[in-house]
């Protein structure tokens, strides 16, 4: 319930009205949206029970390692209602050909694969929020100084998921395990997303915001 009340309202894309529509404009709008979402996500992390009990160094380590997984889960969650689009925001949806035109085809394929998986499972909001918090807690950051504290943080989230599933879906005894088994695909998807945005940055056509670049650099 703490995660439910802490979930931030979805952001809207803010395309520059003075720029004519183009694939580059799509990329600029997307990068701006993701940078704002990252900012909101860092604020959100502080509301995950147990997060601010970790040392500042470990909070940074978990965020630097797991931030893209949480952004990916947000997009995948918003895309649950669609059969072939990625819904980055209510007013920023990309289908396959739009993604390809913008140079995001690999990102599209990866995110749609994970989206379909969760669609088949009928992921609900409580599960998504718990997985999102887990993706930070379980981000396998290097140089964690308080390994025991991080472990407790993970255990509490795992316990919440198990308690939720045994209360809400007592007949599906494998539900929690099945959800945890999606985490490797989430990591793989986030890795592909990081590669995609690193490539965009290196190509130099899309200026990226400082925070987004700082976090991207921590992943490379």
């Amino acid at each position: 319930s703490q995660l439910l009340v802490s979930e931030p309202a979805p952001l809207r894309a803010a395309p520059d009205p003075s720029t004519p529509d183009s694939d580059l404009k799509t990329l600029l709008t997307l990068c701006d949206l993701l940078n704002r979402e990252l900012l909101v996500m860092i604020g959100w992390a502080k509301h995950i029970p147990g997060f601010t009990g970790l040392s500042l160094v470990d909070q940074m380590a978990l965020l630097q390692s797991g931030w893209m997984e949480t952004l990916v889960l947000n997009v995948v969650w918003r895309s649950q209602g669609s059969a072939d689009e990625l819904q980055f925001a209510e007013n920023l949806r990309l289908n396959e050909s739009q993604s390809r035109a913008a140079g995001l085809h690999d990102l599209y394929t990866a995110l749609r694969h994970l989206t379909s998986k969760y669609q088949q499972m009928g992921l609900n909001q409580e599960e998504m929020l718990t997985l999102k918090a887990m993706s930070l807690a379980n981000s396998d950051a290097e140089n964690v100084e308080g390994a025991d504290a991080v472990q407790c943080f993970q255990d509490a989230l795992h316990e919440a998921l198990q308690e939720y599933e045994s209360g809400q879906r007592p007949s599906e005894s494998h539900r929690a395990g099945r959800l945890l088994m999606t985490l490797p695909l989430l990591r793989q998807t986030a890795h592909r997303a990081v590669r995609c945005f690193s490539r965009l940055h290196m190509e130099g056509h899309v200026p990226m915001h400082k925070l987004f670049l700082e976090m991207l650099e921590a992943k490379i």
């Binding site: 604020g43 940074m60 925070l211």
Partner: peptide
Amino acid sequence: QEKHKILHKLLQNGN
């Protein structure tokens, strides 16, 4: 932490 100034500030200073 030098390299990750913005994140460090955001975590230290609240929202």
